[in-house]
Amino acid sequence: MFEAKRIARLKWACRRGMLELDVLLLPFVEQAFDTLTFAEQETFERLLTSDDPDLYAWFMGHQPCLDPDFAKMVTLVKSKIKLGQ
């Protein structure tokens, strides 16, 4: 389980330069991050080290994510955070 300080850094890392990413990433951490396994949490943390244009392309479906762990995490985030609710 992630400690509070690590969660705070994670929330800060979710603040991106694109609104489209902000509305996915931060709500995911606040609403669903605790339900992930430790390995999934670490994968999400690593995912956040990706560049914004790559994250945007993956989340919007403009290009496939070649890293299978990241691809699985993108799908998981999208399934947990429903926009327009």
Rank of each mutant, 00 (worst) to 15 (best):
M60V: 15
L10D: 05
L26H: 08
A57F: 08
H62N: 15
K78C: 13
A8C: 08
L55W: 00
L25V: 00
F44Y: 08
A13C: 10
E3N: 05
F33I: 03
F28S: 05
Q31T: 09
D54F: 13
L10S: 05
D67T: 07
M1R: 07
E40T: 06
T35N: 12
V74E: 04
F38S: 14
K80C: 12
F2V: 12
D22C: 01
F59Q: 05
E30H: 01
L76Q: 05
L10E: 06
L25F: 00
E45Q: 09
L76Y: 02
V77Q: 07
R15F: 03
L55S: 02
P64C: 10
K72A: 15
Y56T: 08
Q41G: 14
V77D: 06
L26Q: 11
D67F: 01
D51N: 07
E40H: 07
L26M: 14
R15M: 06
R9P: 02
A57V: 08
S50M: 08
T75R: 14
A39F: 12
M18S: 11
D34N: 15
S79G: 07
C14S: 04
L26R: 11
L47G: 08
W58I: 06
E30K: 04
T49H: 13
R46P: 13
Q31E: 15
Q63R: 14
L25M: 02
F28H: 04
G17E: 01
A57Y: 11
C65F: 10
A13R: 05
Q41S: 12
L26G: 09
P53F: 02
L36R: 06
E42F: 04
L10V: 05
V77W: 04
L25D: 00
L36H: 05
D34L: 14
E3R: 03
Y56R: 09
L19A: 10
L66M: 13
S79T: 10
E42Q: 15
R46E: 15
A4S: 12
F2G: 09
L10A: 10
L21K: 01
G61I: 07
D69T: 10
D69I: 05
G17Q: 01
V74I: 12
L25R: 00
K80P: 06
L47N: 10
V23Q: 14
K72L: 12
K78M: 11
L19N: 06
K82D: 13
D22Y: 00
D34E: 15
L76V: 03
T37P: 08
G84F: 09
A4G: 05
